[in-house]
Design a protein around this nucleic acid. Structure first.
Length: 918
DNA sequence: GTACACATCATTTTT
DNA sequence: TGATGTGTAC
């Protein structure tokens, strides 16, 4: 790999703080990755665990990780402990840090937006929403927004928050904490608080951290900057990378100023600009610059066209039409010109790669708002151009979702039996009538009575039973006459959507499981009507790891970081980009605008929107088609950005251009392998049965919640504290056990009596464990150790080992990997052993050593048993091969049924499966 | 050219 | 609920 002078300089600046301004297409990720490898290479006292790299999304993290690991393998060979390098989001680092170091937080889980909304509505009074004059349900979203702004933003100097809001904030956090929940903000505030006030915590972080790298630094908000500043203050070298022209997350409080003033706030900063764009032609770059130069608030910089892509006439076109249909027709015609039936325009991905014909998946249509997508989708569909869209939320229009909802309307007597039957018959003609009648009859028996015990009523269980009784499987919905959307058969789409419905039930019941059944049922229907609608995406893109060969339609936001040979930016009208402010109730109706420092950042302004336009244009490697037409009343006039880019000499208006004399080649999708990140439990499901994996991981069918949920995890946490404290040099004795149990035992769905019983038995189990194993404690090497395996080719597996023991038998070290099970399950033993041999592989990556024994330790109250097996010599190589081939099958969507009676017998998902053999 | 009434339309999304 | 476009009156 050839680096430019400035890239080289960035890679080699490792003893000084570093700020990199990286323009679009400047090879940023490659530079960061190479710099990390360079640190490991040239610093003898630095190992992977000394490095933390923050990215903004999980996806970006996976990409960076893959790149770093690849370079490490190439340049450093077999290096141990790479898993201990942190590459991930700020949030997950914080969560990991506090859960790893503060025992109380191990039982906590994080509420995502929809569950948080359910939780707040449930605890409306207690949580303080009523006190600030907000209405239940209708204002919840705004309450959430205010809670995050109050805690993530800064308060204007000299202003003070009203007491009622301070109280509400306190109540809100207290209520969440008492149920062992975090919201996204608390993860960060807790980490910062502990860095400041908890010396043990601070020391543990400080001991390790030597290099901190922050990608996408331009999008950092005040609380994140505070965390970064605190971490850097521990004495770490800090490197930030970003482009102030690509700040597009201001609605999260992202503040360009942090990157603009970095060197004022951090000492000894070396400043490097990467101004070579290797992605796009001179024409694309010129158009982008003509636009972004109108922003006043930016760091001075240039952008050179330094790549191999060459501008040709008619590459960049801007057209205006009178009618929307004409505009869409232009898009269709252009797609056909670029890629016709058998040939595509020749394109060269890299300087030295061979020519290939542009294919559908090389083209993207970028939109600012989702309402723009519909007419384009129709035009493409009518012209048989394959396309994929992600983020359309019309799920509740789908017949299978209406039918699933009807089950519960029937249960709560809002719907007649005949109507319910009609709903299901409209999903597919193939449903067996007799089975359907039977399923409905069984369903009718489950109507909740006033005294039904909550734990015997399960919305999820009812759903699964209905599917089983009605004999609904993926095959049922097969319909050769009915086209699914590209890449997916219609039956896959329907089953995916039913899986999404299962997800909705799970989200709801995870908050409301202990509600009285009749009340819970009503609540669920309201949830579907008022909250869930519009929140869950329709399933025709995300149900596979495979990217289909199709034109992609996505928002400009989603396109950040991607590149395409061909980019369309349609609908370029005033009020669309820059977007018009929406009406309706705003959070500023409830809190004083003046209160929040730089409040304007949370509202979009023209410069923010211009940055979006800039991001959109710079996605293109060569072809760029901007267009507009008069739509409805709001969209009559041309966007100001069109006038700006029209100043570029490279931009032409024409509909009669011709690509026929261009060099052609056979269409061929870009070869790129998506990184695939698996964990051990997902892989375990795959080993059992690939189709089971599909139902769980791709379709999202969730098993019903039970009153005992949490017991196994609690036991793990209790033992972990014992082991960890022993490792820290403390003496563990029986007198502490009750304390550990009370700290960790968390059964969110158990009533008082069950809780007491489980508490008693947990104490007993822990007591016995300690008595029987104390002697062994000195041989503990790790307790709850995160491991990660990199199998190359973008395949990564991660997981946690419960316990590693290393015994010194007179100079011979015997290593045993232990997995705790709360129940002795004879059937699952074999599969658990397989899981343990995966851990052995992880252990080898971590330490370079091969474990000797694998042990399953069952913590059954009646009989605590150990099953120990030696690790066979060839087992590690064997399991490695097995994981790689599994990962490749997952990538190719080869997820067939096992038909193995043994696997089917212990599979809960068999209720949804046509191939189950028991 | 401007003031005003009235009709029309209505974001993005990550953790 | 609020911003914008259109039509009308002056």
């Amino acid at each position: 790999m050839q680096y430019t002078k400035y890239q080289e300089e960035a890679i080699n600046t490792i003893d000084q703080n570093l700020q990199i301004i990286a323009c679009a297409g400047s090879g940023k990720t490659q530079v960061i990755s190479q710099r990390i490898v360079n640190i490991l290479k040239s610093k003898d006292d630095v190992n992977p665990s000394n490095i933390i790299a923050f990215t903004y999304t999980e996806k970006a993290a996976a990409e960076l990780k893959t790149r770093v690991l690849k370079l490490c393998r190439e340049q450093l060979g077999d290096i141990q402990g790479l898993a201990e390098m942190y590459i991930g989001t700020i949030h997950s680092w914080c969560l990991q840090a506090i859960q790893d170091n503060i025992y109380e937080y191990q039982k906590f889980s994080v509420l995502d937006e929809i569950k948080l909304k359910l939780f707040i509505d449930k605890h409306y009074q207690q949580i303080g929403m009523a006190d600030v004059g907000m209405d239940r349900y209708t204002d919840t979203g705004r309450f959430i927004a205010i809670m995050s702004i109050l805690r993530e933003a800064e308060i204007t100097d000299g202003k003070e928050l009203d007491q009622e809001w301070i109280d509400a904030q306190g109540k809100y956090e207290q209520t969440l904490k008492s149920s062992a929940y975090f919201d996204f903000t608390m993860i960060m505030t807790e980490a910062i608080l502990n860095l400041r006030n908890n010396p043990d915590f601070k020391n543990k972080i400080q001991e390790k951290l030597k290099y901190l790298i922050v990608d996408e630094y331009q999008d950092v908000n005040p609380i994140q900057e505070e965390l970064i500043f605190n971490l850097a203050s521990l004495g770490a070298n800090i490197c930030v990378v970003g482009d102030d022209d690509q700040t597009i997350y201001q609605w999260r409080g992202g503040d360009v100023r942090y990157i603009q003033t970095f060197s004022d706030r951090y000492p000894n900063v070396h400043y490097i600009k990467l101004e070579d764009n290797f992605r796009s032609t001179k024409g694309v770059i010129d158009a982008a610059l003509k636009c972004i130069l109108n922003n006043t608030d930016r760091l001075p910089k240039i952008m050179n066209a330094s790549g191999h892509q060459k501008y040709d006439l008619n590459d960049i076109i801007y057209n205006q039409f009178d009618e929307l249909d004409q505009e869409n027709q232009f898009i269709v015609d252009t797609i056909r010109k670029v890629r016709s039936e058998s040939e595509g325009i020749a394109f060269q991905d890299k300087k030295d790669s061979k020519l290939r014909g542009i294919d559908y998946s090389d083209m993207v249509i970028l939109i600012r708002t989702w309402r723009k997508a519909e007419s384009i989708m129709h035009a493409l569909q009518d012209n048989n151009i394959p396309f994929v869209v992600s983020g359309v939320n019309e799920l509740f229009q789908r017949p299978e979702i209406k039918a699933a909802r009807a089950l519960y309307e029937f249960l709560s007597d809002e719907l007649e039996e005949d109507s319910l039957k009609l709903y299901w018959e409209s999903v597919s003609d193939n449903i067996d009538e007799e089975s359907l009648d039977f399923a409905i009859a069984e369903l009718a028996k489950k109507k909740p009575k006033p005294k039904t015990y909550y734990a015997t009523f399960s919305i999820q269980g009812i759903f699964w039973d209905f599917i089983e009784n009605a004999k609904l499987t993926e095959e049922t919905f097969f319909d050769p006459g009915h086209d699914g959307v590209i890449g997916n058969e219609i039956n896959e789409v329907i089953f995916y959507n039913l899986g999404m419905f299962s997800q909705m039930i799970n989200d709801f019941e995870s908050i409301h499981f202990t509600d009285k059944p009749s009340y819970r049922l009503r609540g669920f229907l309201n949830f579907l009507r008022y909250s869930a609608d519009g929140y869950y995406p329709e399933g025709w893109l995300n149900n596979s790891y495979k990217t289909p060969n199709a034109v992609q339609i996505m928002t400009i936001f989603q396109s950040k970081g991607l590149e395409f040979p061909v980019v369309f930016i349609p609908g370029m009208n005033k009020n669309y980009l820059p977007v018009k402010k929406p009406g309706g109730k705003q959070i500023w109706h409830f809190i004083d605008k003046e209160l929040i420092k730089d409040q304007y950042r949370y509202e979009t302004n023209v410069e923010d929107e211009r940055r979006l336009m800039y991001v959109a244009i710079t996605r293109s490697q060569k072809y760029l088609f901007v267009s507009r037409s008069k739509e409805n009343r709001l969209y009559q006039k041309e966007s100001v950005f069109c006038k700006e880019i029209s100043n570029s000499d490279y931009l032409i208006s024409t509909t009669s251009f011709d690509y026929s004399d261009k060099l052609k080649a056979t269409p061929e999708s870009k070869k790129e392998t998506n990184s695939i990140l698996l964990n051990f439990s997902v892989l375990k499901a795959y080993f059992d049965c690939p189709y089971r994996f599909k139902l769980i991981s791709l379709y999202g069918f969730n098993q019903p919640i039970s009153a005992q949920v949490g017991y196994g995890q609690s036991l793990h946490n209790i033992l972990m504290e014992m082991h960890r404290r022993h490792l820290d040099g403390e003496t563990i004795d029986e007198s502490q056990i009750a304390q550990y149990v009370d700290r960790h035992l968390h059964l969110p769905y158990a009533h008082d009596q069950i809780f007491e019983d489980v508490r008693e038995s947990s104490i007993q189990v822990s007591y016995d464990y300690l008595a029987e194993n104390r002697e062994d404690f000195d041989s503990i090497e790790y307790a709850e150790k995160e491991i990660q395996i990199d199998l190359g080719d973008g395949i990564m597996v991660n997981g946690r080992m419960d316990l590693i023991k290393k015994k010194d038998l007179d100079g011979n070290f015997i290593t045993t990997i232990v997995d705790f099970k709360s129940k002795d399950d004879v059937q699952a033993r074999e599969i658990t052993m397989e899981q343990l041999s995966m851990y052995a592989l992880g252990y080898k990556e971590l330490t370079g050593e091969t474990a000797n024994y694998l042990q399953i330790f069952s913590l059954d109250e009646e009989q605590h048993r150990k099953h120990t097996q030696p690790l066979a010599n060839d087992k590690i190589a064997e399991i490695k091969t097995k994981i790689v081939s599994s990962a490749n099958d997952i990538r190719d969507n080869k997820l067939d049924k096992t038909h193995d009676p043994k696997a089917c017998a212990s599979c809960y998902q068999r209720k949804l499966c046509s191939g189950a053999k028991v």
